[in-house]
């Protein structure tokens, strides 16, 4: 194979200009952040948090009817639509004959959930919605199974439910 006869010129070979260019970029960022801190792209978590749009998909919320009962009728469409197979529902007979069916158990395994929102789309009665809570880190594996009560109250959260071992 013929070797290329082309050689970089000296000014490029000593890389000095390239070095100075790189340092220049760093210096520019340094001074911009020093003099205009509001322009920095970082978010100072956890003191500051990003503002997400109202369509943001976080922890699910199970909605309730005006009388306080769960709206879900255990039709299992969300469990069927879920691509991660993380929703487990047990249906039961509701004492009120007009309601007839309701979920006795409604568990979502957040370790499997991918927050795609398919459950929200599948629900025919607007019983499950993707809420805005995303701080779900925890130390215990079993703390990631969110039960019916957890999800019904998921709309009113103030802080994460971390339990330290």
């Amino acid at each position: 194979m013929k070797r290329s006869k082309y050689r970089l010129p000296l000014s490029q070979r000593i890389y000095l200009i390239a070095i100075l260019k790189g340092m220049g970029i760093t210096a520019r960022h340094f001074f911009t952040n020093l003099l205009r801190p509001g322009r920095m792209p970082n978010v100072g978590y956890p003191e500051k948090r990003r503002n997400y749009s109202p369509r943001f998909r976080g922890l699910q919320i199970l909605t309730v009817k005006p009388n306080g009962e769960i709206r879900c009728t255990a039709c299992m469409l969300c469990a069927t639509a879920c691509p991660a197979d993380c929703i487990h529902i047990t249906a039961a007979e509701h004492p009120n004959p007009e309601v007839e069916k309701f979920p006795k158990e409604f568990n979502i395994d957040m370790l499997r959930c991918v927050f795609c929102g398919m459950c929200e789309e599948a629900c025919p009665v607007d019983a499950i919605r993707m809420g805005t809570r995303y701080e779900l880190a925890n130390f215990e594996r079993n703390q990631f199974i969110y039960t019916k009560d957890d999800l019904m109250r998921a709309g009113n959260y103030t802080q994460s439910r971390v339990t330290r071992p």
Binding site: T73, A74, C75, L77, E100, K101, P124, V125
Partner: peptide, 8 residues
Amino acid sequence: DCPICDKA
């Protein structure tokens, strides 16, 4: 009744 009907 489809959500609560067993025949669905």
